[in-house]
Nucleic acid binder design. Sequence first.
RNA 1: UCCCCGAUAGCUCAAUUGGUAGAGCGAGCGGCUGUUAACCGCUAGGUCGUAGGUUCGAGCCCUACUCGGGGAGCCA
Length: 501
Amino acid sequence: MNTKPITELASNIGQEVTLNGWLYNNRPSGKVQFLMLRDGSGLCQCVIEQTKVDDMLFEQLKHLGQESSLSVTGLVREEPRSPGGVELVVSDAHIHCEATDYPITPKEHGIDFLLKNRHLHLRSLRPWCIGRIRHTVIDAIRRFFNDNGFTLVDTPIFTTIAGEGEQTLFEVDYFGQPLHLAQTGQLYLESAAMSFGKVYCFGPTFRAEKSKTRRHLTEFWMVEPEVAYIDLPGLLNLAEDFVFSIVQRVLKDNRSELETLGADIASLEQIQKPFVRLTYTEVADILTSERTKTFMAEQLAQFQAEKQVLETELAEIEAAEAKGGLKKWKQEKNARRMLEIRSELVELEVKIENNPKHARLAADFQWGKDLGGSDETIISLMHDRPVFVTHYPKAAKAFYMKSDRTNDTVVENFDLLAPAGFGEIIGGSVREDDYEHLLARIRKEGYNPDSYQWYLDLRKYGSVPHGGFGLGVERTVAWITGEKHIRQCIAYPRMMDKVYL
RNA sequence: UCCCCGAUAGCUCAAUUGGUAGAGCGAGCGGCUGUUAACCGCUAGGUCGUAGGUUCGAGCCCUACUCGGGGAGCCA
């Protein structure tokens, strides 16, 4: 048996092959049937002509339910009418498991229903495309660091000290000792960087933030590089090369998935080096400027214009429906379009409602505050390539960030904002490498210096300038794929208020 | 934690001003030799989230609760 994956069919035209897969869609049409088969590598249309197969088999296939598993054997041929340009002319088939009443039909479903059925939903086209892209992103991440002299160091998930804020820790009972789940591998990584020079860790990260938004998960994957002997400009260059390489890899390896998802490929192709570099102080000036005021007003006008267009279309469809006399298929198409319009209108309403609030927040922005999500969105919307924001106020940032020795009120940190309104995908900094400075910061935060003894040690024995950053995998995937919600970018999402499977 | 919206068939949604609960998909049966989320005909499928209240009468109005969605704050 000449078994092939669907992806290899184009190079096997004229040959008899066997495909192992699942039934994605079934369209019987009298004496000919079209089975859409998926095998994990792709989709293939299989044609069954009654005259060419056994009668019993023909009847059996005709009634085969969605997601039944089967192997089909037949001749591969070019066929312009088939999606993909190739099809299999079936001569024989073996059914492994007949599925009936598969819950996820080829129609719209609500998100709650899909997440309750996530174990099955993973088989659908959209999650499949996103999963493939996620795989590429992760491979590109590993490749980038491995090819650039970094050593992988696996940092612990049970941790003894906090890296970010102590409120966001998941505490676990570790044989009577309270430990918490890692919210970063950074502190351990700094220690490893003093051994290997350039290191990275890659694994799940846990944050107990009470954030019920489309940008948050309580368990997400983060990659964190840490480099000895590096300064802030060096870190920005590293992050720039890194993100650029990820985008290029996805454009190269997953073009068809991006197309299926309706991702904005043109915008991804516009991502070129150098990225924009702004300081926090410059951002504060931009936010409070006339330019931003105008920009926000223009955004609002645009949203309202879009709303107008959609409302007009909706009214036209409703009028046509009321008039009656439409064919059934036309009615169904209208119903689908109306649903689409309504959900787009809801999205627009939210944007229209939020715009003045965000405009006011930006206009009233005071130096010293951390940038809010809306502020990041504004800056990100103003640029068509990623934006670095550097030198945040010391008071708004974590204790381990190195203060700028020429301006003690700010730290040598950066965030990277993905373009077109997506917002933050990376946060990083140069680390405080001076023992006394660090100790003072730990005390000021109210942490117990005893818990940080080993971390402080690193500043006693051959301390060097060093730094690193963390990139959130799901956020990166959401940005690249254009997926609106981060929960679609991981197979089994863990959200603040709900864990499904 | 706060604000807004929602819950009707297995799924996605309708139901005029409070007056007999509807459609598509899916399921079952039948038809069709080129379908593209196929199409056409027929059949089955409902305690309208839960508990109270107003009313001659409640899917629709009021109250509480449960669950879900979106947003704010915070962050990768």
